[in-house]
Computed example of a mutant assay.
Amino acid sequence: MNQKFARYLLCAGVATLAACTTYDGEQAESLSAKPQLNVIDITTVDSDGGMHYSKPNYDQEDNFGAPGQPPLYSSVQGAYKGRPLTKHVGDYVQNLTQDLVSNMDYVTQKTPIGVTHFALLDSDLQQTNLLGRQMAESFMHEFHKFRIPVIDFKTTEYIRVTDQGDFVLTRDYLELDNAAAIQYVLTGTMAKHQGGYFINARLIGMQSRAVVASAQTLIPFYVVDAIIPSDLDSMSTMQDGIKLSQGE
């Protein structure tokens, strides 16, 4: 009698275990069949246990097979649509300025400099674009931060008041003073590269023509393309998204 009862208990236990296993398998299969929510965990844990936020990877597909879509920035005119920028042209000019100052000779806080537009290397050195002009503006700012005197030779001796606005800068050389006290000039060239524009910057003595500082960097295309011309009607004459301009 005891052996039969023990055998009965053993069979009942095996049957119960099999039923539980089957139920767990069916439940897991049912859960896996349900679509999962597209939730991106942007927090990661450091080795010391601290947590920080990381950027989601938009290049990967979501759970439904669709490619991830990054947020887009667009101007009012809709001329630029792309991923949010973490750097702009001024950041690269800042690095160039630090390289120039680190190997600079003869230039001091008493030697005024001028800044010109950067020329396209594969031209007659009389052509530039919006990138070359913006770099010149950024260099004036960066050198002023180092307390190096910068002469803006495009400044006139009067303020022109017009219906379009009040202006003191001009590109007409007849309105400028040709006796600006500039001892050194910052200039450079730009060459198209596979990944962007390769920039060559240098400080040159106006009298000696000697190079007293130099620096190089590569500005990616996605940073260059973020510079939008204000005159969208001129985009038909643009090359690679940047309007060319001829020196006089």
Rank of each mutant, 00 (worst) to 15 (best):
Q126M: 14
Q127H: 15
Q127G: 07
Q127V: 15
T128C: 08
N129F: 04
N129Y: 12
N129V: 01
N129S: 14
N129C: 14
L130I: 14
L130Q: 15
L131A: 13
L131S: 00
G132W: 00
G132Y: 10
G132I: 03
R133N: 11
R133Q: 12
R133P: 01
Q134S: 11
Q134K: 11
Q134N: 12
Q134Y: 10
Q134P: 03
M135H: 02
A136M: 02
A136G: 02
A136S: 12
E137V: 07
F139D: 00
F139L: 05
M140T: 04
M140R: 09
M140W: 03
M140I: 05
E142V: 00
E142M: 06
E142C: 01
F143N: 00
H144W: 00
H144C: 04
K145T: 08
K145S: 08
F146L: 07
F146N: 06
F146C: 02
I148D: 04
I148W: 05
P149V: 00
P149F: 02
V150N: 00
I151S: 05
I151H: 01
I151N: 03
F153T: 04
F153G: 01
K154V: 02
K154D: 08
K154I: 03
K154H: 09
T155D: 06
T156C: 07
T156H: 01
E157D: 15
E157M: 10
Y158R: 15
Y158L: 12
Y158F: 13
Y158C: 05
Y158V: 05
I159C: 12
R160H: 14
R160E: 04
R160W: 09
V161D: 15
T162K: 11
D163V: 10
D163K: 14
D163C: 07
D163N: 13
Q164F: 07
Q164S: 13
G165Y: 03
G165M: 05
D166Y: 12
D166M: 15
D166R: 14
D166A: 15
F167L: 13
F167G: 09
V168A: 12
L169Y: 04
L169H: 13
L169G: 07
T170L: 08
R171W: 02
R171P: 01
R171I: 01
L174D: 15
L174K: 15
L174W: 12
E175H: 11
E175F: 13
D177M: 05
D177S: 13
N178E: 13
A179S: 13
A179P: 00
